[in-house]
């Protein structure tokens, strides 16, 4: 089942522009490996769900999957064969705004080969180029 917020302040949002790179949410925090987006775009709730199903099927219940993005933005559209005007369309689906560098999914408690296979299958479901990243040594 696709994700969407429980409560919102406004039903419809403006489209906006995706400027710059991810300065937050760009490190592997919870798992051992992550899937990092290399492009900007909207990641629909359906795509997130597709990624979750693919990952959980691939690892067959082993390990732990973390979804690092949430679809906070409602995307509206005007129905087909409708004349222009008459206001903004109705919310069609929900999407997460993704910037280059953002970690989309993380997997923990599994060997690298298994994670690589699982996340490459998830990457295939994503609407933009992604790469596998490992946890960095913590310094502080």
């Amino acid at each position: 089942m696709a994700m969407m917020p429980k409560r919102v302040k406004f039903r419809k949002s403006q489209r906006g522009k995706i400027r710059g790179n991810a300065l937050r949410g760009n490190t592997v925090t919870y798992g051992d490996f992550g899937l990092q987006s290399l492009e900007a775009g909207w990641l629909s709730a359906q795509a997130i769900e597709a990624g979750r199903i693919t990952a959980s099927h691939s690892v067959r219940g082993e390990g732990k999957l973390f979804i690092r993005v949430f679809p906070h933005k409602s995307i509206t559209s005007i129905p087909a064969e409708t004349r222009m005007g008459k206001g903004k369309g109705e919310p069609e689906y929900w999407a997460a705004v993704v910037k280059p560098g953002m970690i989309l999914f993380e997997l923990g408690g599994l060997p690298e080969a298994t994670v690589k296979e699982a996340l490459s299958k998830v990457a295939y479901k994503m609407p933009f180029r992604c790469r596998l990243v490992a946890r960095r040594p913590s310094i502080g």
Binding site: M1, A2, M3, K6, R7, V8, R11, R52, G61, I67
Partner: peptide, 23 residues
């Protein structure tokens, strides 16, 4: 303990087709 796969995996998800509550 491994959890059985549930339909709604993440808190904050509501059933498809319905709209979220407007504050």
């Amino acid at each position: 303990q491994q959890k059985a796969e549930v339909a709604a995996p993440v808190e904050g998800a509501v059933t498809e087709g319905t709209e979220p509550e407007v504050i």
